[in-house]
Design a protein around this nucleic acid. Sequence first.
DNA 1: CCGGTTCGGTGCGATGACGAACATACCAAA
DNA 2: TTTGGTATGTTCGTCATCGCACCGAACCGG
Lengths: 233, 233
Amino acid sequence: MTDETQLANRVLACIPAKDYTRLQANLELTELKFGAVLYQPGKAIKYVYFPTNSLISLLTSVDKRRSLEVGMVGNEGMAGMPFILGIGVSGVRAIVQGAGSALRMPAAPFRVEFDRNRALQQALYRYTYALMAQISQTAACNRFHDAEARLSRWLLMTRDRIGSDQFPLTHEFLAHMLGLRREGVTEAASALRQRKLINYSRGKIQILDVRGLKKSSCSCYQTVKKVFDRAQG
Amino acid sequence: MTDETQLANRVLACIPAKDYTRLQANLELTELKFGAVLYQPGKAIKYVYFPTNSLISLLTSVDKRRSLEVGMVGNEGMAGMPFILGIGVSGVRAIVQGAGSALRMPAAPFRVEFDRNRALQQALYRYTYALMAQISQTAACNRFHDAEARLSRWLLMTRDRIGSDQFPLTHEFLAHMLGLRREGVTEAASALRQRKLINYSRGKIQILDVRGLKKSSCSCYQTVKKVFDRAQG
DNA sequence: CCGGTTCGGTGCGATGACGAACATACCAAA
DNA sequence: TTTGGTATGTTCGTCATCGCACCGAACCGG
């Protein structure tokens, strides 16, 4: 495992070197495939994940058909938060929304390491706070803002975490994230495309104009971004 | 301070007696007045609160006019969660939604006590998890369910935490909690009244038929309740 | 008892999203 | 090259909620 890999995750990056060597022993690099289900509500958490260039979505569903993304975990954080709060099961569904690699650690050794590693605790508690702020803000956003603004926000947040302007993504999939119908996504996306803010075709979306997208999105994007920047330096 | 007062808050109630005596030195009983603002986004947290028969709402707002309740803290928990995650400022606005009493502790001694008291840590981390689950579920609820179902859910959740079937509450206030217009609340409330599930008049609401209200509410109420019951035994 | 304020009730057109149905475009395997 | 599946585009009637305006009724302080 190279330093580069470590630095690719911002939580791990702020662990002092001497603590990190101990941590490293149980960390393994793994490839996350698009759509893979990492956690299920009520099911035990087997691994915690530190995405490097992958992206994990946290979903809540109210019935079989409808679901809503409540949180997004990229290289700025860790998936498996209940575990650091002393809970062994997940409350939400977590799926791989952006394929890529992540560092993962089995639950048992993570528990041991977490309990003795102050730096890790601090980093993860701070991240937990930021994630809660994210969840709260997107909750309000999903209630008040229209499809177009929410889609814009979502694309920007994803871009920040993936670190790329282009990612594979269907309207259908986006609909599940934003709590919309597929047609609603098509409508919003096609409006953005018409204004040359994005382009897309058959499961590939590309961001063309970040500044324009920021204008099109609601202030929630900036609000959440500020919280993360502040909480993680 | 009596044992009764302690037991009235479920977090404090699960601290072993010997740990609790130390805690007690810095806890003070305080009366929370309806509408009082306990936290503001970005402002320092001066006290943490353990409600006994009072109720605190956590609100996120997207602009001056519109706000949404993302979480509710009653005698099952504590307000001031960022503090236990090592953050000194609040991310949300917290207001007193149900007047009553609470035990509070100034930030500095709480920090000291929290760091050395394992039982307190565990209880609060578990509560944090439950609160996150609540926030996530209500986020989806606010997105998918109609005004009437959400109002029913909200009344039931409030009842559980207040411990009473009657509480002072205007439609205007409810609108801010549920992210609705005042008229929307009136419409939903009057439908519930017509079915004799509730009654109300000029700022007082009374629940008449709990079982009926459960039927009228969405499954989100039960979902959240289960999480709390499980997390807190 | 009066006058102002708060609270609740109602009606209006506008709108954003819904659900369903169907059309088209593209891709890949056979 | 056909065929079938997947992704996207479009329309249409319906519905919940919105924002606004206005009312009456209840309450409160003077």
